[in-house]
Design a protein around this nucleic acid. Structure first.
Length: 575
RNA sequence: CGGGAUGUGGCUCAGUUUGGUAGAGCGCUGCGUUCGGGACGCAGAGAUCGAAGGUUCGAAUCCUUUCAUCCCGACCA
């Protein structure tokens, strides 16, 4: 491919609305252009990268025994009504009517459609297991799209759905997908981790997210330094060890704390540590009020609370509700004599007594609170977010918190859809059985963006070869000199022959422009062909990742290049 | 949906406070000089200043309405 015939509109400056590095660099590299909020055109260079990622996904899915198909993006409402999600999905589902006033939506995911297909076609246990997937554009009307391709409204996703006879079959399908995902992200040379994730209200024993580790990730990942444990922070269990302690003889005492409505304010005002205070949080779970208690210096993990309550929805109480239930403005809630019957406390609060809490009166707090003596607790549970100071729930070792970008998710659906939509097969005994499903997603466009988040420097992108738009770029530094052009053509032909995906910068630009652009678009191997080098019988090459330059002899270039290429790939951990 | 901000040439922005002929840099076109890390000179093209309404002799600038985009928050199989 010749640059002069390939449209790569690079920019010196990024548009002002680009916030994260991948968005800025993909725009500057001419890979994407924004059409409207959360939707992007994939320009030729960007599409090449996405296509390469998609092809790796496709190969590994096929290898794992899945079959590719392609389902419509526009879906009829009645399927969604049948699964019950038409009412539950919320405004993220973009709905519209056709000319006959029939309801439709744009597919944010395809459980309904795939289940409809399978129930209509698959009748016998002999046809199972089955795993069907597609690579397709999805639309989710995100409340706030941001970060370019990282969280767009329109994005490319690979979604796979497995159908099995029984739990053991599902387990096998799940493991096959897990293994395929490991292979996929390893082939892409990404620095990633599979982590245990919350499986939410859908249930299922567990699920795994595949996280690309990068500073700008929106998710926090807990990683054990001593064993293989890794989990999304939403999921990470907090171990609570120590002896129970709740004997207290000191009577309750009200203290005046005017205007001190945060834990930090109260602690400072009373001259105590934040850990001496109980934070009282009011929530509404499926319409019912709930009080959650955690130590003042801790953060509530609302996913844990939601799971504990088996709630479909969980929201923080409004200031009006707080006033109604506590009789005080926000900031002075406490568990003693509160007008809420369901009160759950974090395990850790078992280990101490003599707490400070809000008094359910404006500008007042209580001292010498005993949960056992003064509060009608519903129970203790693991409710708080894990911190760096906690230990690994698996091995008790030290943990670290790191940021990650979710690029894949494997999930056991169970019978949620097959049950609701009557997706059955006939077993050996001629009996109807409900199929057991799994679903498995990969954000293909997000993979490319997260890869850039992970691999960049001040000059631009550093693509790993497997998902780089091109593996090599040949810079013709002297387009007006015949022997230089001839050598460029020769090298281009040679690389093509070796199966290298190569771009030639044949533009009539000054060398500086070509160097800058080559660095910006991040092609892993740069080959510099110019009069000076050729005069000395060499061709200069640069490894974009390390910035390391080498000189390869013109004589015997083919062999020298092959060897150098090997070192570049090895640097990416690829043989 | 709450809070904050911004819309001026393809991109980055000045000009708005105090109304008076629409600007700069980058990019683009042509010519010349240059040519190994985003060159320089000269000449050009390109904007109904987001939109609608209003005030005024006169509006990018003031007022009203509206649309869009971005940031923080809430939300998120």
């Amino acid at each position: 491919m010749r640059w002069s015939r390939f449209y790569i509109p690079t920019l010196k400056e990024a548009p002002s609305d680009a916030e994260v590095i991948s968005h800025k660099l993909m725009t500057r590299a001419g890979m994407i252009r924004k059409l409207t909020s959360g939707t992007y055109t994939y320009m030729p260079l960007g599409l090449r990268s996405i296509s390469k990622a998609a092809e790796i996904v496709r190969q590994e899915m096929d290898r794992a025994g899945a079959n590719e198909l392609s389902m419509p993006m526009v879906q009829p409402a009645d399927l969604w009504q049948e699964s019950g999600r038409w009412d539950f999905y919320g405004p993220e589902l973009l709905r519209f009517k056709d000319r006959h006033q029939r309801d439709y939506c744009l597919g944010p995911t395809h459980e309904e459609v795939i289940t409809d297909i399978v129930r209509g076609e698959v009748r016998s246990y002999r046809q199972l297991p089955m795993n069907l997937y597609q690579i397709q554009t999805k639309f989710r009307d995100e409340i706030r799209p941001r970060f370019g391709l990282m969280r767009g409204r329109e994005f490319i996703m690979k979604d796979a759905y497995s159908f099995d006879r029984d739990q053991a079959g599902l387990d096998a399908s799940y493991i096959a997908m897990y293994d395929a995902y490991m292979a996929i992200f390893t082939r892409m040379a990404l620095n990633f981790r599979p982590v245990e994730a919350d499986s939410g209200s859908i249930g299922g024993s567990f699920s795994h997210e595949f996280m690309v580790l990068a500073e700008t990730g929106e998710d926090t990942v807990v990683v054990c330094k001593d064993c293989t444990y890794a989990a999304n922070i939403e999921r990470a269990e907090v171990l609570c060890t120590g002896d129970e302690c709740d004997r207290l003889d000191t009577p309750l005492e009200e203290v005046s704390t005017p205007g001190k409505c945060t834990v930090a304010d109260v602690a400072a005002f009373l001259g105590v540590s934040e850990a001496a205070i109980i934070k009282t949080l009011l929530y509404v779970a499926d319409g019912e009020p709930v009080v959650a208690l955690v130590r003042g210096d801790r953060e509530l993990n609302d996913v844990k609370l939601k799971n504990l309550l088996h709630a479909d929805t969980l929201e923080m109480a409004s200031p009006e509700q707080v006033q109604q239930w506590t009789g005080a403005p926000v900031g002075f809630a406490g568990p003693v004599n509160i007008k809420v019957s369901r009160i759950v406390a974090d395990n850790e609060l078992r280990l101490a007594t003599d707490w400070i809490t809000g008094a359910n009166k404006g500008d007042m707090h209580l001292k010498h609170v005993s949960l056992k003596r003064d509060v009608k607790l519903s129970g203790f549970a693991d409710l708080r977010l894990i911190t760096e100071g906690d230990t690994c729930p698996k091995c008790g070792g030290a943990i670290a918190l790191t940021k990650g970008i979710e690029v894949g998710h494997v999930f056991k659906l169970g019978t949620k859809y097959s049950e609701a939509m009557n997706c059955k097969y006939v077993d050996e005994d001629g009996r109807d059985q409900t199929m057991i499903m799994g679903c498995y997603g990969i954000g293909v466009s997000r993979v490319v963006a997260s890869c850039i988040e992970q691999n960049n420097d001040k000059d631009g992108i550093m693509f790993p070869p497997p998902i780089a738009p091109f593996e090599a770029i040949v810079l013709n530094l002297d387009t007006r000199t015949d022997d230089v052009c001839a050598k460029v053509d020769e090298i281009y032909a040679l690389l093509k022959e070796q199966g290298v995906d190569v771009l030639v910068d044949d533009r009539e630009e000054r060398p500086g422009v070509k160097f800058k652009d080559a660095d910006l678009i991040g092609i892993p191997m740069q080959l510099v062909v110019g009069g000076k080098g050729l005069g000395r019988g060499i061709i200069e090459v640069k490894d974009r990742r390390t910035g390391e330059k080498s000189e390869l002899p013109v004589d015997g270039f083919a062999e020298a290049f092959t060897a150098w290429k090997k070192t570049v790939y090895a640097g990416w951990g690829i043989n």
